[in-house]
């Protein structure tokens, strides 16, 4: 366990930039390269998901004419990246996505090249419910180091070998022996007050078709605009689209985040659409998170960050859906 004095944080981040590309939460909106600004109050609107499933992943480049033979494109960051200020729930989200993308070279290359440094939230945000989804913010899942803000500075737990290398860049002090105790007590107190939602266990055992056919879906989905805001902000939604983009005579094939809320998501070339109705798409999203993924991996595809609840323009609350699903 180490201690980083609060005043030393910015210096350390600057020094890190000599060895790494350094990203931090720069504003309430999201992450960016560290240039002095640092926004550590509460989580950012966009999670750290974009470092692994970016807004554009080029996979192929080609001359835009029939018969052209494309060349593979593979992004490899020149330097390792350090993302500081990641919320433990968002890091947990990356580990959930990794369960699906473990053999995807694009995701894995980014994972290999990116260190995630977590920051335990001092207080849960108004809409947070990570613990209900089984996320322990002190466990450090998906992280290389975990920072806990204390009176004198940040208590730092280094969780991986590559995390330990970061010591070289900063005025870290060996924390006093009582520091581990402070950390442990904070964790215990948190876990004593926050439990996993019993709904998850009920959903695991539940009959899929019964939930699917339940009559509450229509009423719950009625306000949904199918705008996809929840999917783009979600730190665990991983669906992507593949598009060929052509400018002049040059083209690239890109992977882009996609939303299962959109009608075109499941529309066949013939026009047939197995999830034509907005209700069907709404239902699919929640079944994926709280039934399909839960059944397959034992955990829900949700880390309880609450962004969907905060940002939904129609005021849809995920808990109303979970409650309905778990009482079928």
């Amino acid at each position: 366990m180490y201690l980083l004095p609060k005043k030393a944080l910015k210096d350390w981040l600057l020094k890190l930039a000599s060895g790494y590309e350094v990203f931090v939460p720069r504003s309430p909106e999201g992450f960016g390269p560290y240039e002095g600004e640092l926004h550590l109050e509460g989580k950012t609107k966009l999670s750290a998901k974009e470092f692994f499933l970016p807004w554009r992943e080029e996979i192929l480049s080609f001359e835009a004419r029939p018969g052209a033979i494309p060349s593979p494109v593979f992004f490899e960051p020149q330097r390792e990246r350090v993302v500081f200020g990641v919320r433990p729930c968002d890091a947990k989200g990356v580990t959930l996505i990794e369960k699906v993308f473990q053999h995807d070279p694009f995701f894995q290359k980014r994972r290999e090249k990116t260190l995630l440094l977590g920051l335990v939230c001092r207080e849960p945000g108004r809409e947070c419910f990570g613990w209900a989804m089984g996320v322990n913010p002190f466990a450090g899942e998906g992280l290389d180091a975990l920072f806990l803000e204390g009176e004198e500075g940040y208590l730092v737990k280094l969780l991986t070998e590559r995390g330990k290398k970061l010591l070289e860049f900063g005025p870290f002090e060996e924390a006093e022996e009582t520091a581990s105790e402070v950390f442990r007590r904070a964790e215990e107190e948190f876990l004593a007050r926050h439990q996993k939602a019993p709904a998850l266990e009920k959903l695991k055992g539940a009959d899929l078709l019964k939930i699917y056919e339940a009559d509450f879906w229509e009423a719950l989905a009625l306000p949904c605009l199918n705008c996809g805001t929840c999917t783009f902000l979600c730190p665990t939604c991983y669906c992507f689209d593949v598009q060929d983009e052509v400018v002049g005579t040059e083209g690239v094939r890109v992977r882009l985040p996609e939303a299962c809320m959109f009608e075109i998501y499941s529309r066949h070339a013939s026009g047939h659409n197995p999830r034509r109705s907005p209700v069907a798409r709404f239902r699919n999203r929640f079944l994926h998170k709280f039934k399909y993924f839960l059944d397959q991996y034992g955990e829900p595809l949700c880390v309880g960050c609450g962004r969907c609840n905060e940002e939904c323009p129609a005021g849809i609350n995920l808990w109303e859906v979970i409650r309905a699903m778990s009482t079928v």
Binding site: C239, H268, P274, Y292
Partner: peptide, 19 residues
């Protein structure tokens, strides 16, 4: 079965029929 799909590798999730 046939469904719209993008990756063909079980990643992009477009083609799901339930799980």
């Amino acid at each position: 079965l046939e469904n719209r799909m993008r990756c063909g590798l079980g990643l992009c999730h477009h083609c799901n029929v339930g799980p």
